[in-house]
């Protein structure tokens, strides 16, 4: 499975946010999308996931343009604001994600993920009862619960201290390995470089390195 971006450009309200971006990501590959705020990381992620349409260029997965069905089937997304459903418990959030994707839940996978992420004891807790770190892990667990081919995480360590940031980055890499998923982490946090083999630096909407 290969995610391909070709000559992608996008502008918002007259401002060029992304300009002529091209990249590829293969199964199991891990990539850090590094750049300061406003460099276009989140917009690029939105285009990769099909949540935003490029003005020019295209994004394909195995030569198929990204659409809703492909996103639901192949992508697991960890949102910067986590977006856990507040009315549901941690485990219910995972069940909901699985049911919406496949129509059924996989309790064994959920139990494994919660255990693996060290939040099994918080399975029945509601999002507001979780610490920031627990909520972060819960969002990762939900993204992985749908067995994605590509795991996308936007600023997954922005609210964490250095130790926890490193733990989460390693965890994402390990879990992606275990799931056989490709991983893209968008971040401004240079501390994550050592944990992800490939780094793509964005500056003012262009690939800088």
């Amino acid at each position: 499975m290969m995610l391909t971006v070709r000559n992608l450009s996008k502008a918002y309200a007259g401002r060029q946010v992304l300009l002529d971006i091209s990249l590829t990501l293969r199964s199991g590959e891990k990539m850090l999308l590094l750049g300061p705020s406003g460099s276009g990381k989140s917009t690029l992620l939105a285009c990769l996931c099909g949540l935003a349409q490029p003005d020019t260029g295209k994004v394909t997965l195995d030569d198929a343009p990204i659409n809703d069905a492909i996103r639901r089937r192949h992508f697991g997304i960890v949102f910067q604001t986590l977006r856990l459903v507040s009315a549901l418990s941690l485990s219910a959030n995972l069940v909901l994600a699985q049911k919406l994707q496949t129509g059924r839940s996989d309790p064994a996978l959920i139990a494994h993920l919660l255990e693996r992420l060290g939040i099994a004891g918080r399975a029945n807790a509601r999002p507001h009862q979780l610490s920031q770190g627990e909520a972060q892990r819960a969002a990762i667990a939900r993204a992985l619960a749908v067995r994605p081919a590509i795991l996308v995480a936007d600023e997954p360590t922005s609210a964490l201290d250095q130790t926890n940031a490193a733990i989460v980055a390693r965890l994402l890499a390990d879990l992606a390995d275990e799931a056989g998923a490709a991983l893209i982490i968008a971040t401004h946090d240079e501390r994550l470089r050592p944990h992800v083999p490939r780094t793509l630096t964005l500056a003012e909407g262009r690939i800088a390195a």
């Binding site: 949540l51 996103r71 639901r72 997304i77 949102f79 604001t81 977006r83 459903v85 507040s86 909901l96 994600a97 919406l100 994707q101 749908v146």
Partner: peptide, 12 residues
């Protein structure tokens, strides 16, 4: 809005 948008993204 955010919750429901998320549900849509997840397949609802």
């Amino acid at each position: 809005e955010g919750d429901l948008a998320l549900l849509r993204v997840m397949g609802a």
